[in-house]
């Protein structure tokens, strides 16, 4: 009978229409922005810089090694290395980024910067409501906007952040084989010197912090 196929199709639409009142399966939309679908833990959007402690700029993990700048496929990262050194989260003097800009109008959220960073300093954020009224400067994030605390990182990627913390703690423990308390400051300074003078490439292969033997404290 002509039209039987069409009627059969109509039955399907009727089933879906009525079903959408009773089954969640058949009505999957949410009323954004009043209602929001939860984000999965692995969700990534744009990168941010992790800092330890309370002070954002003092606690930045980034040592301005510029690996992410080189590896970034669309080249949206811009770093200027500092002239001087400041103590990092472990207390040893390191370079820090005098400028760290990410142009998020260019960034394509590929997270290659996260994968290549040997210092676990750059991670992916989850913020997605980033519309701006201005196209250029408003979408250029500087290091003040990018810096976010480690506890924020724990909030958005709990599993990953815990792994990172364990790895950093292990690396720190390996580096400091409990020197005598009185001789600690010079030993740490010497260790830091040895670590920073090592070529950056060495730090990269293992994917973690460079584990340099500490010179014996004298």
């Amino acid at each position: 009978m002509t039209g039987a196929g069409i009627l059969k199709g109509m039955a399907v639409t009727a089933r879906n229409f009525v079903g959408s009142y009773f089954e969640k399966e058949r009505l999957t939309t949410v009323q954004y922005p009043e209602e929001r679908a939860p984000l999965p833990e692995n969700y990534r959007n744009f990168p941010f810089l992790v800092f330890d402690g309370d002070e954002a700029q003092a606690g930045l993990r980034c040592v301005a090694c510029q690996i992410c700048e080189k590896e970034c496929p669309p080249q949206c990262i811009y770093i200027v290395k500092s002239k001087d050194k400041k103590p990092d989260y472990m207390g040893k003097p390191q370079f820090y980024p005098a400028t760290f800009d990410i142009d998020i109008s260019v960034c394509m959220s590929c997270q290659i910067c996260v994968e290549v960073c040997p210092f676990d300093a750059i991670k992916m954020d989850k913020v997605y409501e980033l519309s701006r009224r201005e196209r250029f400067d408003a979408l250029l994030m500087d290091k003040h906007e990018l810096a976010k605390s480690n506890s924020y990182y724990h909030g958005i990627h709990p599993t990953e952040a815990t792994e990172v913390d364990t790895r950093l703690a292990e690396a720190a423990a390996k580096k400091k084989p409990a020197p005598p308390a009185t001789a600690a400051p010079p030993a740490v300074a010497a260790a830091a010197k040895a670590a920073t003078s090592a070529p950056a490439a060495e730090a990269v292969v293992s994917g973690t912090l460079p584990a340099k033997p500490t010179p014996p404290a004298t």
Partner: peptide, 13 residues
Amino acid sequence: TPHDEVLERAKEH
């Protein structure tokens, strides 16, 4: 764009 400076520097690498 603010990106020009970035490109300029990228050439060095």
